[in-house]
């Protein structure tokens, strides 16, 4: 099976001493992997390293077999991500923002913008300025932006932040639909254990900067039980 993501010995340490240490992670094409961990454990740092937003202190990252550090443009092409800021320019509309992103992908049809706006429930707000959006609407836009170029690997950092119940359902349906139809791989960081439990087939716990991998439904235990045990064991 093709590997969507391979991280080998990835370390990123900040001056505060926090960060991630010697992370080894291998994600197969089609996996939906949930990233969990306490606040400040290094989840966002891990995702930023995967997308080149942060350069690791040491280690190697490969996306679909291409070294991220050696050939960033080629490696990042099949990747969609929502990490931190959602919009490129908040004084512009979601349609304009997505059109700007679409310029990097000449192969995607013009209808793709409307399609992702429909998928995230933002179509009727396509001509409103993003600066007027609520937190949840901005989050929906971020998800639309991540899915725009029909990526093979989608990396989402706290995608449920600010979403209402309808938004949560929409996000879950969108992920399940995209994963089922196109075999897209997802890496999702979240504190919503129940959401992750419904979506993921694998989990990666980041505790004290180190990674622990788990398959879903191991020994019939719930995600919460497995997670709490892992945190207690680490402390």
């Amino acid at each position: 099976m093709e590997k969507a993501l391979v991280m080998t010995g990835v370390t990123k340490l900040f001056s505060t001493g926090r960060g991630i240490k010697d992370i080894n992670l291998s994600v197969n094409q089609g996996d939906i992997i949930g990233i969990l961990g306490p606040n400040g454990a290094g989840k966002t740092t891990l995702l930023k390293c995967m997308t080149g937003l942060t350069k690791p202190t040491k280690g190697k990252i490969e996306l679909f077999g291409i070294n991220l550090d050696g050939n960033f443009k080629m490696a990042i092409r099949p990747i969609g991500a929502l990490i931190g800021a959602m919009a490129v320019a908040e004084n512009m509309t979601p349609y304009q923002n997505l059109k700007m992103s679409a310029r990097f992908y000449p192969e995607i049809p013009k209808t793709a913008i409307d399609a992702v706006l429909q998928l995230t429930g933002l179509f009727q707000h396509r001509n409103e300025k993003i600066s007027t959006f609520s937190m949840g609407m901005k989050q929906r836009f971020g998800i639309a932006s991540a899915l725009l170029a029909k990526p093979r690997l989608v990396i989402l950092d706290e995608p449920t932040n600010g979403l209402d119940i309808e938004g949560l359902l929409l996000l879950r349906q969108a992920i399940q639909e995209v994963a089922r139809q196109s075999g897209v791989t997802f890496v999702i960081s979240s504190h919503h254990l129940s959401e992750l439990e419904q979506l993921c087939n694998r989990y990666c716990f980041i505790i004290n900067g180190k990674a622990q991998l788990y398959e879903a439904n191991i020994n019939g235990q719930s995600l919460e039980e497995v997670y709490v045990k892992a945190v207690e064991a680490a402390n």
Binding site: T51, I76, R77
Partner: peptide, 13 residues
């Protein structure tokens, strides 16, 4: 400041 200086798009630094 806004966190949009670097983007996850196929463009080199």
């Amino acid at each position: 400041e806004r966190g949009t200086l670097l983007i996850v798009r196929p463009i080199s630094r």
